[in-house]
Write a protein that binds this DNA or RNA. Structure first.
Lengths: 195, 195
DNA sequence: AGTAAAAATGACCAATCGGTCATAAACGAA
DNA sequence: TTCGTTTATGACCGATTGGTCATTTTTACT
């Protein structure tokens, strides 16, 4: 990796939690200068403008979330355990696995009325997340763990929505308690299709 | 109502959709000047600063949402129908009942890492929303419509989370389809406790 | 109609915004 | 070691930000 590419990655890593916490509009290039200890001119060597940096950081945050989720999933073997792992890894919104909380929720809500590019990016993440859940269940059905009458695609929508809604509830409540209520309901729904 | 109070209300009404769409940070006082056709000095006659205006507007948006929900609820009589009305009135996130979408989601996600006052305000709205759902079911139980074994407080958390999560999904997808999947799942859970 | 208070105006302010660019330093292939 | 290229610097730019205030206009009460 060249020196330039190393600096670019350092900028992204440093900027990621800032954008995810403050949002795109409220994050100033001066914030990134402070975090990276780089001069303004140097930032603009690696990124055309603030928008390009923001888009790159959104990608980074969503991929970081994805890799954290996959890491958790890999520790479980059965489909049921993978679903539980998925829930568990996202069940502490106040101490989130990605600094600042779920980037889809953060950037999606900021951008949905103002920024079509970001909105599309977030939508892809949302669709992908549901696909992950969907794939886990499908495999479970194929391997005889769940009933093949389960409308698992619809359940993936429900499960994703519940977890994201739980993020809102817990983040503004400043505690993770309600996430356990959500987990219990999901487990109950899952168990109903177990063979 | 004095002229001053009239102007103040006009400012709030004009500013409400702007803040709800763009967010607090991205909304400039000049945006409010344009929308109200008032001079900058006049705005500062009625509000100490941008922050006070923003807080007032957040309250306005949340109360507007509340009154729209109550209006919908009043048209239903049974507890089941009230729950359905609650879901239905929030099931078009792309064409929301409050311009810009759910203010709890919008302001909550913007503020949770940066603004304690707004976060607390949103949390109160979140708690209140769950209370509304909870109260509907409680009345349904008392009147023999639902089983008294239903843990309705937990269900209120789940229902609220699902609807808010659905807002994210639909808003970034630019269509309301997935909200029907969520509605169906909620209806199925509700029907399980009907007598 | 007279008048004191309230409301509206817009020029003005310092600070900050995103972004540029001439210059210097550091890098890396020969 | 040389030397063209890449990277880093920070002063600088115009635009915009939130906010102020002396002045004028409007309101509302007597």
């Amino acid at each position: 990796m060249t020196k330039g590419e190393e600096t670019r990655q350092m900028i992204i890593k440093s900027a990621a939690p800032i954008f995810n916490k403050k949002g795109i509009a409220a994050t100033a290039m001066s914030d990134i200068m402070d975090a990276t200890k780089l001069s303004k001119g140097s930032l603009y060597v690696h990124f055309e403008n603030k928008d390009e940096l923001a888009l790159t950081v959104i990608d980074y945050n969503m991929q970081l979330l994805g890799s954290r989720v996959f890491e958790a999933l890999s520790k479980a073997s059965s489909a049921r355990d993978k679903l539980i792992a998925y829930i568990d890894v996202l069940s502490t919104p106040v101490n989130p696995i990605v600094e600042g909380g779920c980037p889809m929720l953060n950037f999606g809500m900021e951008a949905d009325d103002t920024n079509e590019v970001v909105t599309k990016k977030v939508n892809e993440g949302v669709v992908f997340s549901q696909q992950i859940i969907s794939d886990i269940i499908k495999k479970g059905i194929d391997e005889g763990e769940f009933s093949n009458e389960w409308n698992y695609k619809d359940f993936a929508v429900v499960m994703f929505a519940m977890i994201e809604g739980g993020q809102l509830i817990c983040r503004v409540a400043r505690n993770n308690r309600k996430m356990q209520v959500i987990k219990a309901n999901l487990l109950e729904q899952i168990s109903r299709w177990e063979l």
